[in-house]
């Protein structure tokens, strides 16, 4: 038995042959078992492609991928232990919610019918309604519920809470966390709302342009970068340092983002020079490590 739930080795996906653009580019990742893992990346970074390759919905152009030590393609035994929730890939047709539930129960041997029905009640989704009659948010919730109820050893959730209102989203995070505590398993969830999601995560993967930037525990991510605020003269003494990621200067002062923890050596040095040190939250860490945008570009818009 392997300690990883999923292993991807140099996986490349090219939707159009010959084109230079790769949805995944030599993508390598090994996911730890029984963790609740966030998959974070900007639009077009390759999140959905990765989910699709993992679940066998599409094949990798090159590279190897295995889930629970098994090759992904043409493997029914493994598919029973792998659930993928993606609002774009629903069950065809316009069946009533109750019928879709039956289909899921038929596909997944550990599907918990009673749990799924209780969740439909909790979120106020009627089993009699047809899938297409549901609002966007309720349809998303329904697929989330069914995916969770599969209790599959590897559960992939691709933006499961898009279009869901704040109250239900809060409830959904709680349900997801509680079910993970009661039935530990590997759950990979992508979201554009890391600020909301982060408390329930144990680990996080950041991807950018089809590559893995990092895969770390949440607390490690909070110690990756720090922010230093001060005046221009104070900041200038450090600007040649390679730990600095970005600098921003304005009338109100100058700040820079540096690599390292707020309690690290570099931060201490900066603090001694009189600058104010603060932590950088995971959602901002992701932006600073992947964004190429410069503040000056924004200013240009109104000039």
């Amino acid at each position: 038995m392997n300690e990883y739930a999923m292993e991807a080795e140099n996986v490349t996906v090219q939707y159009v042959k010959g084109k230079r653009v790769k949805a995944l580019d030599e993508f390598s990742l090994k996911l730890h078992k029984e963790q609740l893992i966030g998959l974070i990346g900007a639009n077009g970074s390759g999140k959905t492609t990765f989910f699709k390759v993992c679940s066998g919905a599409i094949a990798a152009t090159t590279g190897k991928i295995s889930v629970l030590d098994e090759k992904v393609n043409f493997n029914l035994a493994m598919q029973e232990e792998l659930a993928f929730c993606n609002p774009e890939l629903p069950i065809k047709g316009n069946l009533p919610v109750r019928k879709v539930l039956e289909l899921y129960a038929g596909m997944y041997p550990h599907f918990d019918v009673a749990f799924a029905n209780k969740l439909l009640d909790l979120f106020g989704v009627s089993g009699k309604k047809r899938i297409q009659e549901l609002s966007l948010g309720n349809r998303a919730i329904t697929y989330f519920i069914f995916t969770l109820a599969t209790r599959a050893k590897v559960t992939l959730l691709d933006e499961p809470f898009n279009g869901i209102d704040f109250e239900k989203r809060k409830l959904a995070y709680e349900v997801l966390l509680r079910d993970y505590i009661e039935n530990p398993r590997t759950i990979l969830i992508s979201s554009h709302n890391l600020a909301e999601l982060k408390p329930i995560l144990s680990e996080m993967v950041l991807i950018h342009e089809g590559k893995v930037i990092f895969y770390e525990e949440m607390d490690t991510i909070r110690e990756m970068l720090f922010r230093a605020d001060g005046d221009k003269e104070q900041a200038e003494a450090f600007l040649n340092r390679e730990e600095i990621i970005t600098v921003n200067s304005g009338e109100l002062g100058t700040y820079f983002i540096g690599r390292g923890s707020v309690n690290g050596e570099f931060a201490k040095e900066v603090k001694k020079a009189g600058m104010k040190i603060s932590a950088v939250e995971p959602e901002d860490v992701c932006v600073y490590l992947t964004s190429k945008r410069k503040e000056s570009e924004l200013e240009c818009l109104w000039k």
Binding site: Q35, L36, Y173, E174, L177, R178, I181, P199, I200, L201, S202, E217, M218, D219
Partner: peptide, 11 residues
């Protein structure tokens, strides 16, 4: 702690 504070058990 995880259940009542809605945080990951690892945390």
């Amino acid at each position: 702690l995880a259940k009542e504070l809605n945080i990951n058990p690892a945390t």
